[in-house]
Design a protein around this nucleic acid. Structure first.
Lengths: 243, 243
DNA sequence: CGTAGGTTTGACTGATCTCAAGTTTGGTGG
DNA sequence: CCACCAAACTTGAGATCAGTCAAACCTACG
């Protein structure tokens, strides 16, 4: 995969390459998409539940999550996103958002009009295949989250979530493998696992006592094998093997 | 939508019509897909987690669910399926199954080779759009399940699951609206909501005492408005409005 | 009628939540 | 470089929702 130039979409191009065969024309067409670049801050909402959406946000830098809120104010994070992800691909075919999209760090987002992305998908079968696979893998991850939240104990649940985050980031960017720092707070872990922050804190202490992770300023996995085994983590559901 | 002939795929054709515009050629092409019809029984596995899959099962008659099992044997149902559904559309682009697919009643399944379905999708943009939207709605439902299992109390959780099942079936088949009978056991409700069968039983008693449902031989909703309100159920996530 | 699967009930246990302090950390301005 | 502040993290004690275990009880069906 020769890379001609540096572009904000390079991470996404790499990702699509992993998802399905892409030729040079596919890559350049993706690179040539119109977009509007915006700097965003921790806590900014990119999309709110119920909104009509006519653009897709490509996460260039920083981290984001999708979440929903129940009647009683319970907040549940349903996914995390890393640079290179297109954050609301479902809006390619579903006009109205069923969830919120929020930044969990500062960063940059490139907004692409849905109609431009639709046209790209119609004219480039390889890109369509990559995007479709991406949305199907997304669905597979949601299924695993249902299992995680529904049938695992608090400690295992947290460990699983951390393993997934680390594994996805390692795949997206090989250089990150050395950087075990996970940029999310205990409150966010609680919202993702369906627990309270207090209990997350206690379980993290237990994981530290087990020797699986360190309690630095933020989350760091120190013993991968141990963490994976505590987590009941089998990465098959991430469908990361070559297309 | 004129219906020329009666076919095993009629429910699916109706479903695709709801998902995206289909012309007569689209419908006849779907109807002409090669398939192998099989009678299946309650408890039969159609696909097992980890298997390579080269065919898609169209549920002609009966009910099915998808589920995963944790290391300790905990079983979590991640979706239910009704007649007309294509059960493992994700295998159109993901070769290996990440979950089990099991019948929860007797019925009939039409097995369609993945390559036939792929060809159909490549040559019929309207069908591709319908199927893609279907998989995206699937993902939306998984997100809601994460919220349901993660952040709702047992009673609300069960009520929500029942509302969804009834709402989806009502959309799929108008004549079913009058038939509030829900063909799943308390054990299955427990596996879908991440609870134990014992607690499901107690919460169902509470729902009966509230007057929202009846405790017949199987589940029947008697007061929709009440059930919806107990359930914190907002059907927006089902994206059932016209395409 | 006998049986298996599904449902119902009771008594007790335990994982997780709630409430209510502290304490540490990282950034910011003087 | 230090003082301060807000956000995040930590800890303890008591309450509660849901789980466990064990036993009946239906009910459809052969």
């Amino acid at each position: 995969m020769p890379s001609r130039s540096t572009s904000l979409f390079d991470r996404t191009i790499l990702k699509f390459d992993r998802l399905a065969y892409q030729d040079e024309l596919d890559r350049s067409s993706l690179r040539d998409l119109p977009f509007e670049l915006r700097t965003v801050h921790n806590g900014d909402y990119l999309v709110r539940a119920g909104e009509g959406v006519v653009r897709c946000g490509l996460l260039v830098e920083g981290y984001a999550c999708r979440h929903k809120v129940t009647r009683n104010g319970g907040r549940q994070i349903v996914s995390f996103h890393i640079p290179g992800d297109i954050l609301n691909l479902q809006n390619l075919f579903l006009e109205r958002s069923d969830h919120n999209l929020e930044m969990i760090s500062g960063g940059q987002v490139a907004w692409i009009p849905v109609h431009s992305l639709s046209a790209l998908v119609e004219n480039h079968p390889n890109i369509a295949k990559a995007i479709w696979r991406d949305t199907l893998i997304d669905a597979s991850i949601f299924r695993e989250w249902v299992v995680n939240v529904g049938r695992r104990t608090a400690k295992t649940r947290i460990a699983h979530m951390l393993c997934e985050f680390a594994a996805r980031r390692a795949t997206a960017d090989a250089s990150q493998t050395d950087n075990p720092y996970i940029p999310i707070t205990q409150q966010q872990i609680a919202d993702a696992t369906g627990l309270t922050p207090v209990h997350v804190n206690r379980m993290i202490r237990a994981l530290v006592e087990d020797g699986a992770m360190a309690r630095g300023s933020r989350v760091v996995i120190t013993d991968w094998a141990l963490m994976r085994s505590i987590a009941d983590f089998d990465p098959a559901y991430l469908h990361q093997q070559a297309a």
